[in-house]
Computed example of a mutant assay.
Amino acid sequence: MQPPDPDPSQLRVALFSGNYNYVRDGANQALNLLVGHLLAQGVTVRVYSPTTCTPAFPPTGDLVDVPALPMPFGRGEYRVARGLPARVRRDLAAFAPNIVHVSTPDLLGHRALGWAEANGVRAVASFHTRFETYFRYYKLGFVTPFIERLMKRFYDRVDRVLVPGPSMERLLRDWGVTAPISVWSRGIDHARFDPGRRDMAWRRALGIADADPVIGFLGRLVKEKGLSIFAHVVRELEARGVPHKVLVIGDGPARDWFACRVPDAVFTGFLSGDDLGRAVASTDMFFNPSVTETFGNVTTEAMCAGVPVVAARATGAVDLIEHGVTGFLVPPRDVGAYADAIARIVADPALRRTMGEAGHARALAYRWDTANQAALDAYLEVMAAPA
């Protein structure tokens, strides 16, 4: 017999995250917004994640600490959970979830899936980060095929995989993942990211002349965001005599490394709220050479602010950018092609304006309430499916 369709108030979701709020990033911003939406719809949620004494922001919902150790390879700002110790298992059993949601294919995620399988609980996984691409930035590229196989096995253990866009679904299918897949897209704060927040006086205060075409970078300053390619492209623009100014919005462990390679750039440090919206709108183009994105929140934020985007032709960006209309998609490591695209936007203010307007119009479709409702609908579909 087909089980009755559940309603949101029947859902008890145990969400597992490797980083729910101790370091701010796009993945945990999306997870916190999802939890807020779930709670508003009557869902009961409990979050399990490593924590620190100095979190980047307050968590949304109930958060249970999972013991963890600092991540190796010079990335000690992140924590690696040590699995599911007895204290956490007791808390999980008392909470009695009917859906387990894992957001990271780490040891914690594997143990959470094992618990779900052992207890007959439905499981959902969301794909946020292309970890398999990270290793080459730390001279460990030889392990990439092994990591891809591990991730394929991980995602095939769940009842549903949530991906942020069609390009990620294609990637998982190319890996051989056979589990059902749904799209859980992302939204934008449309009041914060708006062309009207452009502020020439703020630019002047940073030493940027009104006539300077500003190339923006937005995000955590870590090597896997394509910082090396970014720096090579800046040097190519300098060699060609293309006028520009680089504005770097963000901070991270690779800041000093990056600053040595783009010595004439202006670094704002970490910005949030309306300050961030003003900074993004005050650029003239956004350059994102990262190939590690699953979606690219920063890309949609730039588009929403009316800024054309030059990005790697890779997952995430190919779902967001219409080549030649809202920006340019470039072969990922082609320094000359990146420089060509940026130079074209610099040389043609009318193109810059029309691309910005087209990007803003396209970005209006990305809304958090719609995106998060799609995730909730996927939960309900999983619960309604025959066991």
Rank of each mutant, 00 (worst) to 15 (best):
A123V: 02
A123W: 12
V124W: 01
V124N: 02
A125H: 00
S126W: 04
F127L: 01
H128D: 08
R130W: 06
R130G: 03
F131M: 10
E132N: 09
R136C: 04
Y137T: 12
L140F: 10
F142K: 15
F142V: 15
V143K: 07
T144C: 04
P145G: 09
E148D: 09
L150V: 08
K152N: 15
R153Y: 09
F154A: 01
Y155C: 07
R157W: 01
R160L: 14
V161C: 08
L162A: 07
L162W: 01
G165I: 10
P166T: 06
S167V: 10
L171A: 13
L171G: 05
L172Q: 14
L172Y: 08
R173A: 08
D174L: 10
W175N: 08
W175Y: 11
V177N: 11
A179V: 04
P180N: 10
S182I: 14
S182P: 12
R186Y: 00
G187V: 11
I188D: 12
I188S: 13
I188Q: 03
R192V: 02
R192H: 03
R192F: 07
P195F: 05
M200F: 01
M200N: 06
A201W: 03
W202H: 05
W202Q: 04
G207V: 15
I208G: 00
I208S: 00
A209K: 04
D210R: 10
A211D: 14
A211W: 07
P213F: 05
V214W: 03
G216L: 08
F217P: 06
F217E: 01
L218S: 13
L218I: 04
L218W: 00
E224A: 11
G226K: 04
L227Q: 05
L227R: 02
S228E: 15
S228G: 13
F230D: 04
V233R: 01
V234N: 06
E236G: 12
L237P: 11
E238K: 14
R240T: 07
R240V: 05
K245Y: 08
K245M: 14
V248W: 02
I249A: 03
I249W: 03
G250M: 00
G252P: 10
G252C: 06
P253D: 11
A254I: 11
